[in-house]
Simulated scan of single mutants.
Amino acid sequence: MQDNLPNTVVKSLACGTTVVAFDIGGLPDIAEHKRTGYLAQTFDVKDLASRIQWILKFDNLENQTSRES
């Protein structure tokens, strides 16, 4: 909640791993919503948890975005 630009997100994207994070601080500048990750509503832990589960269900974000309702 405090880190404005976490390096873990940069490292995750460099490895090709999908990012799930809150839409706050510098994160929207790093992770592109529904392209390289999912940015949950700020401090909405239910949204964050549901998107982590959703991401884990599918192989990659490209397939996930086409299935989102």
Rank of each mutant, 00 (worst) to 15 (best):
M1W: 15
D3A: 13
N4V: 13
N4Y: 13
L5P: 13
L5R: 13
L5I: 13
P6E: 03
P6I: 07
P6D: 00
P6K: 04
P6V: 09
N7Q: 09
N7G: 12
N7D: 08
T8F: 11
T8D: 09
V9S: 06
V9L: 03
V10Y: 01
V10P: 04
V10C: 07
V10R: 05
S12W: 00
L13W: 08
L13H: 05
A14G: 10
G16R: 04
G16Y: 04
T18K: 04
T18M: 07
V20Q: 02
V20M: 02
V20R: 02
V20C: 01
A21H: 04
F22W: 10
F22Y: 11
D23I: 09
D23V: 03
G25R: 03
G25E: 06
G25C: 06
G26V: 09
G26Y: 14
P28D: 08
D29C: 05
A31S: 14
E32N: 13
H33M: 00
H33Q: 06
K34W: 07
R35H: 12
R35I: 11
R35C: 06
T36P: 07
T36H: 04
G37P: 00
G37D: 07
Y38V: 06
L39M: 04
L39K: 07
L39Q: 00
Q41D: 00
T42A: 07
T42C: 01
F43T: 10
F43I: 00
F43R: 03
D44G: 02
V45Y: 02
V45K: 05
V45D: 08
K46S: 03
K46A: 03
K46M: 01
D47E: 02
A49W: 07
A49C: 02
S50Y: 05
S50P: 02
S50Q: 02
R51D: 02
I52Q: 02
Q53W: 10
W54D: 04
K57Q: 14
K57G: 14
K57N: 14
D59S: 15
N60C: 14
N60A: 15
N60H: 15
L61F: 08
E62L: 00
E62A: 11
N63F: 14
Q64V: 11
Q64H: 14
T65H: 13
T65I: 13
E68P: 03
S69P: 09
